[in-house]
C-alpha cells in the first residue's frame, strides 16, 4: 500500500476524508473523497521543550481522551474528547475531522431539502420545525456548530496549522458564513493543532446537556478552565457550543469570575447575548445551567 502525498490528495479536488464518521454517514454511497488516513504528516502527538503539545490532525478522539499526558496538561480538551459521541466513533473520528465536520441539521442532511449549506438560498428550518437551533443570532443558518473539540480548543486559545498557511487561531477557522461550517478553502488541509504551554493547577470541566444518558449531539455544551489562588479565581476560560454557528468563548462570564462574582451571577451573563426563537427559549436556560454546571464542577474539588 502506497500512501499518496498530500499534494496528490489536494489535487483530487474532492472533499477530504479523515476518520469518516461524518463524511461516510452523509454521503453513502459514494467514493468521491480524498482519503487522508495514513498520511504521516498528520499523525502523532509531539511535545515541545516548553511543555506544549502539537496534535496531528489524524490523532483520534479516543487517543486524546486516553492519553495521560494530554489529560494532565489539557484536562478540558481530554474531558471533552471523552464526553463526545460513542466509543467506536471516538476510536475512528479524528481531531481534524471533528474540527471540520459538517453540521447535524436534519434539513441539511436530508436530500429532500436544499439550504444555504448546500448551495441554496434559504433555510427550510425557519418555516419548519427544529428543536435544537442556534439561540445566538449569527446569520441566516440555524444549525449549531457541531464540533465539541473546537469549543475545547478555543478555550485554550489553540492554533490550527493549515498547510501552506502556517498557524492560525482555531477560532478563525469559523465564521457566520451560512454556506459553510468552516472557512478553509477547498484543497486546504488542516495538519494539526497547537496548544499553549500548560497552566499549572488548572481545574477543568466539560458538560454536555443531552436528553438521554449517552450518545447524543448536545443541546448545549460547555467547558471551563479555572485556576484558583487562595480564594480568588486568577484564570477563567469558558467556552460553549450548541448555541451559535460557531463555538464561542464567553469573555463576559470570564471577566465576572475574575472580578469575584458568584458563580451563578457569572453564569447568568451567558444569557445576555441570546435572542432565541420561542421554541428554543429553553436553550437559554440550558446555556446558563451548563455554564454554571462546569464552573461548579471546577470549583468543587
Amino acid at each position: 500500500m502506497t500512501t499518496p502525498s498530500l499534494d496528490d490528495l489536494a489535487a483530487l479536488g474532492r472533499e477530504f476524508r479523515a476518520g469518516g464518521t461524518d463524511l461516510m454517514s452523509r454521503t453513502v454511497p459514494s467514493r468521491e473523497y480524498a482519503d487522508l488516513s495514513g498520511t504521516p504528516e498528520l499523525t502523532g502527538i509531539e511535545w515541545s521543550a516548553d511543555g506544549s503539545a502539537r496534535i496531528g490532525a489524524l490523532t483520534t478522539v479516543a487517543e486524546i481522551a486516553e492519553d495521560a499526558l494530554i489529560r494532565a496538561a489539557y484536562p478540558a480538551l481530554a474531558g471533552t474528547a471523552a464526553g463526545l459521541a460513542t466509543p467506536q466513533v471516538r476510536a475512528a473520528g479524528t481531531v481534524g475531522g471533528n474540527l471540520l465536520q459538517r453540521n447535524r441539521c436534519a434539513y441539511f442532511r436530508n436530500p429532500a431539502f436544499s439550504c444555504h449549506q448546500d448551495g441554496g438560498d434559504s433555510c427550510p428550518a425557519r418555516a419548519g420545525t427544529m428543536l435544537n437551533p442556534t439561540v445566538i443570532e449569527s446569520g441566516p443558518c440555524l444549525a449549531p456548530h457541531p464540533s465539541s473539540l473546537a469549543m475545547a480548543l478555543i478555550g485554550y486559545d489553540a492554533t490550527a496549522e493549515v498547510r501552506g498557511r502556517g498557524a492560525v487561531p482555531v477560532r478563525d477557522l469559523y465564521g457566520d458564513d451560512p454556506g459553510a461550517d468552516h472557512l478553509l478553502a477547498p484543497g486546504e488541509i488542516l495538519v494539526g493543532v497547537g496548544l499553549p504551554v500548560p497552566v499549572p493547577g488548572e481545574r477543568a470541566a466539560y458538560h454536555r446537556a443531552i436528553g438521554r444518558a449517552e450518545a447524543e449531539w448536545p443541546l448545549v455544551e460547555a467547558t471551563a478552565r479555572v485556576v484558583v489562588e487562595g480564594d480568588r479565581i486568577t484564570l477563567a476560560a469558558v467556552a460553549v457550543g450548541g448555541v451559535a454557528r460557531t463555538p464561542l468563548r464567553l469573555p463576559e462570564v470570564e471577566a465576572a469570575l475574575l472580578a469575584g462574582e458568584p458563580l451563578d451571577r457569572a453564569a447568568a451573563l451567558a444569557a445576555d447575548r441570546c435572542s432565541p426563537s420561542p421554541d428554543a427559549a429553553y436553550k437559554v436556560a440550558l446555556l446558563t445551567g451548563t455554564v454554571l454546571e462546569v464552573l461548579e464542577r471546577c470549583l468543587d474539588d
Binding site: 454517514s25 447535524r104 436534519a106 434539513y107 442532511r109 436530508n110 429532500a112 431539502f113 427550510p124 418555516a127 419548519g128 420545525t129 428543536l131 447524543e216 449531539w217
Partner: peptide, 16 residues
C-alpha cells in the same frame, strides 16, 4: 417529526 411545509419526515436516522 415531520416538516410542516413539505411533509417530509425529518427524524429519518437513529440520531434524530
Amino acid at each position: 417529526r415531520i416538516d410542516p411545509v413539505t411533509g417530509v419526515v425529518l427524524t429519518a436516522n437513529l440520531e434524530d
